[in-house]
Computed example of a mutant assay.
Amino acid sequence: MAPHMENVQTIGQIKDRLSREEIVILLIKSENCSVCDAIENQIKDGAIKDNSVPVIKAKLEDAPEISGEFLTFTSPTILLFINNKEHWRASRFIPFDDLNKHIDFWKT
């Protein structure tokens, strides 16, 4: 079972979610990006082993300021936040094994 993925459209929505949750994964993607779609599908197919970790998804076209706020210059980018601080990031081809290790470490 994959984690639930919530769509967000503003920096405010992202910051609100980061402030309310202990651990959050942020997927930043672009329209018409086949790699972005593939990464999103991998998440939906269970690439993130702990399905209790919330995943929020933002499109750069909905809120272009996301790129500057989170210093993301390519998509897809996945950021792992713990206690509202970035702890891990990867872009383009995502090493989900590494991401899962970081989640496991912080959940124990």
Results as ranks from 00 to 15, higher is better:
Asp104Ser: 14
Ile43Asn: 06
Phe73Leu: 11
Gly12Phe: 11
Leu27Ile: 06
Lys85Arg: 13
Asp45Leu: 09
Leu27Asp: 15
Gly46Thr: 03
Ile78Ser: 05
Asn7Lys: 09
Ile94Thr: 01
Pro95Glu: 05
Leu79Cys: 02
Gln42Asp: 12
Val55Phe: 11
Ser34Glu: 13
His102Met: 10
Asn100Thr: 07
Glu65Cys: 04
Ser91Asn: 07
Asn83Ser: 15
Thr77Arg: 09
Ser30Phe: 04
Gln42His: 05
Pro54Asp: 02
Ser75Met: 12
Val24Lys: 00
Ile43Lys: 04
Trp106Lys: 15
Trp106Met: 14
Leu26Asp: 01
Val53Tyr: 04
Met1Asp: 15
Glu40Val: 02
Asn41Thr: 07
Asp98Pro: 10
Leu18Phe: 02
Gln9Trp: 05
Asn83Gly: 09
Asp97Cys: 00
Ile43Cys: 06
Asp62Ser: 15
Cys36Asp: 14
Thr74Pro: 01
Ile14Cys: 10
Ile66Asn: 02
Leu79Trp: 03
Gly46Phe: 00
His87Lys: 15
Asn7Met: 09
Gly46Tyr: 00
Gln9Met: 12
Pro76Arg: 00
Ala58Thr: 11
Leu60Ala: 03
Lys101Thr: 03
Leu27Val: 09
Ile82Tyr: 15
Arg17Cys: 07
Glu21Arg: 05
Glu6Cys: 02
Thr72Trp: 04
Cys36Ile: 10
Val35His: 04
Asn7Thr: 10
Asp104Phe: 03
Thr108Leu: 10
Asn100Ser: 07
Phe96Ser: 06
Phe93Tyr: 13
Phe70His: 09
Leu99Val: 00
Ile28Phe: 01
